[in-house]
Amino acid sequence: MIPIETQPRPTAEDNLRAIVSHDADGAIIVDSSGTVRFLNSAAEKLLDRHGAELHGQIFGFPLVVGERAEVEVLRPNGEFAVAEMRVLSIVWEGQDALLITLRDVTFERQAEAALREAEAFSIAILNSLTSEIVVLDEQGKIVAVNEAWLEFGRQNGVTDLASIGVGADYFAICAASGPGTGGPEALQGLQAVLAGQLAEFTYEYPCPGPQGMRWFALRAVPLRGERQGLVIAHNDITAQRRAAQIAAEAEMLREQVRQMERELVSVEAISRPDEMVRSLLAPLRQRDPERFQKGLSRYGELLEAALASRVHRTPAPSRPLRELGEWLGTIWAAPRDLIDIHLQAMRERSQHNPPKKLQAYFEEGRLILLELMGHLASYYRSIAAGELSSRESE
């Protein structure tokens, strides 16, 4: 009988050596004193060192069995690698030992650092903008805001900034504002942009606050990139709104007094010498600023008195208005000067008054201005009639 030779059965140590030798992660075995007894090719690649250089050297990191830790590895070329380290207890060559596995996470950490840097840069850009910026996800939740948005909340009495910050439901806030506030209309436009039905959405809305009524323009565009969402900018247009209101008021007044102005110019031509007419063509604001301010002050007093009479439902005094018209005639004020006085008074009151009161000022001021025009016309007619009478008597 021919004896059959059998291969010796691999030991547990042989199996362990085979596994760690071919493992894609780095593997280092150290004895109880921390001296390196074995490392695989993946560990050599991670450390950028030959195994012969490290064999017999002390492993230079603290080791805690069963825990994970991230370590920075300095390579010979001066570069750092980041590895996730785990430590297990094993038996190696008949002695207690530790198996250290090192998974290279350098690329992942570099990508995370680049992402954090990009996000920080994006936030820095947002915070550099003066417009209030809000970024929403596809569900309408806030995912980013800038400092201007948070400061707007503080100025308008928002004590819980989390209610308007990251994580808040912007769509729910719009829906809860109720009809007549503009919230539902804004929500409909925002959802249309999100659904791709609109390229962008713009909307103007009022916003009451401690500083009075303010107006804002909302502009929403899709979020560009892999993530769906919206970028919303809020711009304060209160000054533009007030300026437009005053400009519209001025145009309406000019239309109303155009015929009267032509009549008064004709009266002036009759009642003044040509040299005087030429010298008084400049607006009152330019040729006599002190008297312009005095007229503005008296006009403001009449305006306030008219508003008080409106509130208390009492007749407004007419004598001060006639006296102001005659006084303006004595300083050769023209219809355009009355319009300048009226508009300046409106500008001063448009700064800190709510819309309803400002509207009352406009309505009462328009009536005062027209009546004042009448008194001024009467004054010039009387001068013209006197001048004509004196000429006829001569």
Results as ranks from 00 to 15, higher is better:
F201P: 01
H55R: 12
V277C: 03
A334F: 15
A172L: 04
G365L: 05
R366Q: 13
I164D: 04
V277L: 08
V257H: 03
N77R: 10
E251D: 13
V134H: 05
L63A: 11
V166A: 08
A43I: 03
I368W: 04
E119D: 02
L281Y: 01
L296M: 02
A176Q: 05
V231K: 02
G212I: 08
K141I: 12
V105A: 00
A360R: 02
K45A: 13
L303Q: 06
R254E: 08
P315I: 00
G225Q: 06
A118L: 14
A175I: 09
A239K: 14
R103C: 12
Y380M: 07
N40C: 05
L46D: 02
M213P: 00
E249Q: 15
Q139V: 13
R86F: 11
P335Q: 06
I142E: 11
T202Q: 14
I232E: 03
G386A: 12
P355F: 04
P289E: 12
G225Y: 04
R242K: 11
H22I: 10
L46W: 03
P184H: 01
V311Y: 13
A27C: 14
T101S: 09
A316P: 10
E255V: 13
E53W: 04
L54G: 00
N77T: 07
A144F: 07
T238W: 01
R278T: 00
R9V: 14
E348H: 10
M1Y: 12
S163N: 08
P283N: 01
P317I: 02
H50D: 10
D31H: 04
D23A: 10
E44N: 02
E119P: 02
Q155D: 11
S21F: 03
E268S: 11
F121K: 15
E371I: 08
Q211W: 03
G209W: 07
A97K: 03
G386W: 00
Q95P: 10
L150I: 09
Q110G: 12
I125D: 05
V166H: 05
L358C: 13
W327T: 14
F80L: 14
D169S: 11
Q259R: 14
D340G: 10
Y380L: 07
A69W: 10
P208H: 06
R154H: 09
